[in-house]
């Protein structure tokens, strides 16, 4: 058995996202508009204290 053999060359990461309510197995299947939308998504902060700062921003 060759110990220096490389495993997984050319294999991508899977990135599961949600669109319209359905999950989608990988971003490759998204249409162009949904790719753009997914790219733009920002996170929503859940800590109460930083909430006010967010608002004034």
């Amino acid at each position: 058995m060759q110990q220096d053999q490389l495993i997984g060359e050319g294999v991508g990461f899977e990135r599961i996202r949600r669109i319209t309510g359905y999950l989608v197995g990988t971003l490759d299947r998204f249409n162009n508009a949904k790719r753009a939308e997914e790219h733009d998504r920002v996170k929503h902060d859940v800590s109460c204290c930083s909430l006010e700062e967010e608002h004034t921003a």
């Binding site: 939308e37 920002v42 929503h44 902060d45 109460c48 967010e54």
Partner: peptide, 11 residues
């Protein structure tokens, strides 16, 4: 909009 920064509770 998904690009707009907003807290979870406000959204």
């Amino acid at each position: 909009p998904v690009y707009y920064p907003i807290g979870a509770f406000e959204k």
